[in-house]
Design a protein around this nucleic acid. Structure first.
Lengths: 245, 245
DNA sequence: CGCTGTTTTGATGTTATTCAATTGGAGTGG
DNA sequence: CCACTCCAATTGAATAACATCAAAACAGCG
């Protein structure tokens, strides 16, 4: 560890990790981790940090995408809407996920910050150039796409076959396992989504979500204060209620 | 046509398209299309054709995958089951889709033929070697993963927010647009799925599916004979009922 | 303290499920 | 060719789950 730091410090002036990237969370689990120092420097020159407040749309359904981004911190909702306004959240993204669908211009969904979120934006053409230069980058993007596909299919099982109670428990389980520093599972956390968002994620109404949360509280599966702050005494118990065995 | 055959026959001995591949549908839209003649020959030497009767499992949830495959003809159901037996079909695959999740050993889902299906199987290690040699192949697999992700998210909207009537119409629309030679949309087709399968795909019960099909028939959105054979007088009308605008 | 927006709770309505028969079609054997 | 069986699909009646409509409670926040 000491040695690694020493090494990094030593050649900071000849194209090692750029200053803006050196403290970045996304570099470890994210896509930037596959790039060479030169490529990272190249990318960092064209990248811009943005802070997004909750509810702010990053990219709208049907708009053209001119950039991709890494999530530095926060939570982003990906959603789709029907012509009559019915809405479904089709995915949540956490740091250090990569945002944006490669190889297509028009976005098929809306991306919107759920809480205060920091992202690092890259112009589309720079990413596309790096993809063609560094095969490792496409591999990383491919793996993220496969991970998201697995998650989407898991969620389809939840949407299609679980009861309201199981859906809400499944949602709480997802948050417990993703909200933290991307590794461990946390027993105490703040919900990044409002009741309306949760309903849109679960294919339910606000009222049903509220009733099921109340029910889980009364059955001591969770403890609640502030309506956003949740404590999970036993994750095994939560998983069991969620139908995950 | 005559000329193409002539040309193909001429240089069959100097590593052009292998004989087993020359008539294969999957070569055009499928993954093989990205390979050089040499690579295609390499792959074809290790590939084996298989015919699968309806209901036959290709790979089970939790089993280890030792091979990938291209669908030559037919329809494959991808499904997930809960511990108590509740089942959800999370995707349908048609020719010339590529089957199998790259870069992971254990399958998270069950693949099962819905109708008589022909596939072309490749050993896992051969595919992995070709991926590392031919960047175009990984790109193609990446694009297929992104396509499946888009489809999964579209279906999440259907599962979470549509009524039973809209769900059944959405299913019929999917079949109408995918069952044919992979290009056009067809007004007349045979359903590749039983009512039980349709229910598992839509997150409904057999009875509800049946009732909604009857309702669509009575409203002249579809015509039915044989309970599997469907005619769609107006695809626009079907789309409208499906909530696709 | 009085807004405003979110969440909870209650009463009622609707949709889809469940349970139970019935119908229909394909295959079999008399 | 006609019963007979078997399985899939349809239909009907009762029920349960979730949605809708409406009101009250509970924050934040100026």
């Amino acid at each position: 560890m000491q040695i690694v730091n020493e090494h990094r410090r030593k050649d900071i002036h000849n194209s090692d990790v750029p200053a803006v990237c050196s403290a970045c969370e996304a570099r470890h689990g994210g896509v930037c981790g596959t790039l060479s120092p030169d490529q990272l420097l190249d990318l960092s020159r064209h990248s811009t940090r943005r802070s997004i407040e909750p509810g702010r749309e990053v990219i709208g359904q049907g708009e053209t995408t001119d950039s991709y981004a890494n999530i530095i911190s926060g939570v982003v909702k990906l959603s789709k809407v029907l012509a009559d306004g019915r809405q479904q959240i089709v995915g949540l993204q956490f740091a250090p996920d990569f945002m944006g669908r490669p190889f297509t211009r028009e976005s098929a969904l809306t991306a919107e910050a759920a809480v205060d979120t920091d992202i690092c934006c890259f112009p589309r053409n720079v990413i596309e150039r790096l993809v063609s230069e560094a095969p490792g980058l496409e591999h990383r993007l491919h793996e993220q796409a496969l991970k998201e596909l697995d998650e989407a299919r898991d969620w389809m099982l939840t949407l299609g076959r679980k009861t309201a109670q199981e859906k809400v428990a499944s949602f709480l389980y997802i948050i417990a396992t993703h909200i933290d520093p991307e590794n461990g599972t946390s027993n105490v956390f703040d919900l990044p989504l409002s009741r309306a968002d949760i309903a849109d994620y679960l294919g339910l109404t606000i009222e049903t979500v509220s009733r099921q949360i109340t029910k889980l509280r009364k059955e001591n599966v969770i403890r609640i204060e502030n309506s956003r702050h949740v404590t999970v005494p036993s994750l095994d118990r939560l998983m069991h209620v969620a139908g995950i065995d």
